[in-house]
Simulated assay, not measured.
Amino acid sequence: MLDLLTLLAEGRTLQQIAHDWDLEPGTVRIYAARLRRYLGADTNPQAVYLACRAGILDGRPQRHGDHAGYEAHRKRGETPCDDCRAGEKAHRARYATPRKRQTAPERP
């Protein structure tokens, strides 16, 4: 995902990235959508902006206490601070998809 983010930051289009990676454009669009969801962005440029602001692309953290700050710590190989850990927990809770509960089949 970091490779995709880096190429988007360089101004490459999804079609160009798909061609370079020998993938279908739809596959790269799915990767980009996952990346946007992961960063909490609505558009690819916003994802690049949030990644830069969080220090994911340039390695310098500029925010703490949220998901992006947590990822900046992880990218640099650091142990995330308590505020960033709590922000990551809140992020996961907000974007977690509920799982269906398995029920045992009824016996006759």
Rank of each mutant, 00 (worst) to 15 (best):
R53S: 05
Q15L: 12
D83T: 12
Q62H: 15
P25D: 12
T103R: 14
R85E: 08
A32Y: 04
L8Q: 01
P61V: 03
A41F: 09
E10F: 08
E10M: 14
Q15N: 14
V48P: 00
G11K: 06
D3W: 06
Y95M: 07
A9D: 12
V48F: 02
R85G: 04
A41R: 08
A68M: 00
L39A: 08
Q15R: 15
K100G: 04
D3S: 12
Q16W: 00
Q102R: 15
G65Q: 07
H73W: 13
Y38G: 03
I30T: 15
R74A: 12
T13I: 05
D22V: 11
R76D: 04
I30F: 13
P105I: 01
D22P: 00
E71D: 07
D22R: 15
A9I: 01
R99V: 08
R36S: 05
K75G: 04
G65I: 02
D42K: 13
E88H: 13
C84P: 04
D3Y: 09
W21F: 08
A9R: 07
C81Q: 05
L2H: 14
H73E: 07
W21C: 01
A93H: 14
P80S: 02
H91C: 05
L2Q: 10
D3F: 03
D82M: 05
R107D: 11
A18T: 11
L35P: 00
G77Y: 09
R29D: 11
R94G: 01
Y95Q: 08
E88I: 00
